[in-house]
Design a protein around this nucleic acid. Structure first.
Lengths: 202, 202, 202, 202
DNA sequence: TTTTAACCGAGACGGTACGTCGGGTCTTTAC
DNA sequence: GTAAAGACCCGACGTACCGTCTCGGTTAAAA
């Protein structure tokens, strides 16, 4: 039987400091050279305080990143986010993807999210958590927008939205993750056009 | 000035042993717990022999993997590979993607290629090499097939093949890498259909 | 200025429990592996309750040991102890030393007293306390008995009793502490004989 | 089966540096605050180099101390040491004990030898080694001198020299180790006198 | 054909970080 | 309202690997 620490007595100050230290360290020196000891030192915290609450540095980073997302969302004074629905599917998708491109190029997000994605490839458990907590909720928004488009007759009824969304989301993801190409607003606009109207002649 | 070792005197036996040890270790214990020391020990080789020829374990693995690919190709008694061109673009693409699915599910490839992809996300230099030596050559085959389809009037002339191919390749890649969904022959068939004919009604 | 705890409000039950836990732990796992945390846990007491009243585990043990001595003495229904004075100095000394041998071989005393002696070698302050509270009072009894023997003409007048007693006490102590030889009744008898009559021929 | 390191490849420089660092650290900060990490740092050596060759800091110190003894002995350009035998037993013993007193008061020896003695009380294995390698050889010299005195008729034939020597050696040892009294030339002279001629009137 | 230089297996070395343990302090919770 | 429980910061533990280095020995190129 493992001794679980008492979460009620947890120091909120330390938690915050650890999140901040983790994110800033990853930004400064990169993920592989970020160490638990380094996080503890920068956070002004004992190593044990990290090991008490997280099993590994990847988990620290995941939580720190989720927390960052929440804080950013809160700042933006948000109601649960949805993809805009102006009636023009192409325009709505292009707008959202342009925003995504901007976010992917934001250096604050770059290092930690790439690090998490990488760790997730190799560490199955973390990968699933990463996907479930960060990726899927985003993708679900596309599913909803595509459903609405199907009702409006702008997308064929027999199309599976969960697969359809990958036509424009995955290419962007891959270019960003694997540096297989530049990412830009024109690029994502093109993706939307290709996906909606197909490659074959009409 | 760096001392370059004399490649002519290199022990072929050691090289082979190191490749084998690296691949089998990654398969056995996973990439992060694969160590240079471990590879050396399993290969029956001094550590220095590894460091003499490769700068890092990632590079060892990359070469080992490239070598594995070559050997497999050789076994298959292959002329330089091309995507079949039967005149039916959809059928050709589906066939190739089905073969890719089979390969991705082959456990021999699973651990090392996932490991390399992951390392490539975080280690820019390795990532570029991975893309240049493994990924791009594959993608180039699609570019050629799509060009031929354009000439045959099966793909619109203004479509950029390098982007177009991502509509079916990237979704598969992402599902496999990030476990965001199952991969199967029906799935890739669907991708090809969606990509060629678009999501919007005709 | 240090905050002194209010000794009047001290919990007698905790004190007892700590003494018992400390002695039994030292007996069970040895001094170096006895920890303050371990004592607290076994005593069912918070660590702070120990640190409130003692500066270190050595001091806890010293007090616990003194207390043990007192309790044992009490059990024995004792008036302040003196060395018997039957008029036969040799016999009296031999009797006392035999009793001491028995005590030294009692496993209840072995671990803690050896531990305290060891700690006292290295921790000067504790050493002085150990000597002052445990050792010197014992030695003083010998001083008195030897004085009485001098008055009876059984010991030369010019002999310094404080030094003289060391002739039989120190060898026993050293053998016990440093395992430099076995200790037994015959051994201490011999010591008394040698000390009283000298090594040189009469 | 434990992996034994190859002693032939051992770095003599590191060994020396570790001895020096260990002795000087014990001298500077005392035994309990001497850490393996500290020794490694001061010696400019990796921790593993210490753990490779010694099981604990106590063993490092023991060897360092033995080595110091040897070096000092070598400096003194020594033939195997013996207690002088001028025919006058009392004088010879007094001379040797005076020298011992001087050595015990030498600050170079003080900290490490006290530390070793202390550790030896609690760590049985080390204690035996300490006694066997350092203490007993010294005591044996007294045994020989006393035997010679017995042959010369200056010590009673039935006296056991191994016990007899404790009459003057142990008191000195105890005073030094446990701070139970000052040590000086007059003190050891007195011990010799008492031991040789006894406490009882002639 | 001999010499000789480099590679080779082996593994010790100075280091860095790991994850754990316990010290001594401070805070929270429960009796 | 006191003290148990235990989280906290800190520092040392002993281990695992890192990447470099040195040691003999073997082996293949140059002389």
């Amino acid at each position: 039987m493992v001794k679980r620490p008492d979460a009620r007595r947890r120091s909120e100050k330390s938690r915050r400091a650890i999140y901040d230290a983790a994110l800033s360290l990853v930004g400064d020196v990169g993920y592989p050279r970020t160490t638990v000891e380094g996080i503890a030192a920068r956070a002004g915290v004992g190593k044990q305080t990290i090991y008490r609450w997280w099993p590994s540095k990847a988990d620290v980073l995941l939580e720190a990143f989720l927390d960052l997302g929440e804080r950013v969302a809160e700042e933006a004074g948000q109601q649960p986010y949805r993809i805009p629905d102006t009636g023009d599917l192409a325009a709505d998708l292009k707008a959202v993807l342009r925003a995504t491109v901007d976010e992917l190029l934001d250096p604050r997000f770059e290092a930690p999210s790439r690090a998490l994605a990488a760790e997730g490839l190799v560490n199955e458990q973390l990968g699933r958590e990463f996907v479930a907590k960060l990726l899927e909720p985003q993708l679900q928004l596309y599913v909803e927008r595509l459903r609405s488009a199907q009702e409006a007759g702008q997308v064929r009824a027999e199309v599976d939205p969960r697969i359809a969304l990958e036509l424009f989301v995955s290419p962007l993801a891959q270019r960003w993750l694997q540096h297989t190409g530049e990412i830009s607003h024109t690029y994502t606009d093109t993706l939307v056009d290709y996906a909606l109207h197909g490659l074959a002649p009409r």
